[in-house]
Amino acid sequence: MRKYRLTYPSEKLGDALLSEAILKTNAKVNILRANVDYDRGILVVSILADGKKEKEFIGFLEKHKISVEELSGKIVKDEGLCTDCGLCVGVCPTDAITVEENVIIINNDDCVQCNACVEACPFRAIRIQEF
């Protein structure tokens, strides 16, 4: 299952393009995060479909001027800086951070890269690592 960041330009915000893409390609899509700003909208989705449908789905959106990028980075904690306090656990919207045997574990499969943990960490121990 791959995750993508879809960026809508402001003039496309009123269009139901995601629904159209789903209906057209029959791909199952899970919306993980949605932010709408005055100048753009961002959706983070995971696509549960085979490679062909996934390609069609992305192709449709790109044809309608929506930029599609795969979320390639991952959240990492700096072991030297992290004290294993749990302040990141509380702010994570997808419960991707847990405490196991008093140590913070980040599960990147569940992460939607919203940055909440990065901002909440008092030790600046968490960051998004891009590949």
């Binding site: 294993d84 306090c85 749990g86 302040l87 702010v91 008093n102 140590v103």
Partner: peptide, 13 residues
């Protein structure tokens, strides 16, 4: 409601 611990049990141990 989710709870989050601000201290550290790892370092306490």
């Amino acid at each position: 409601i989710k709870t989050a611990f601000m201290s550290s049990l790892r370092i306490t141990n």
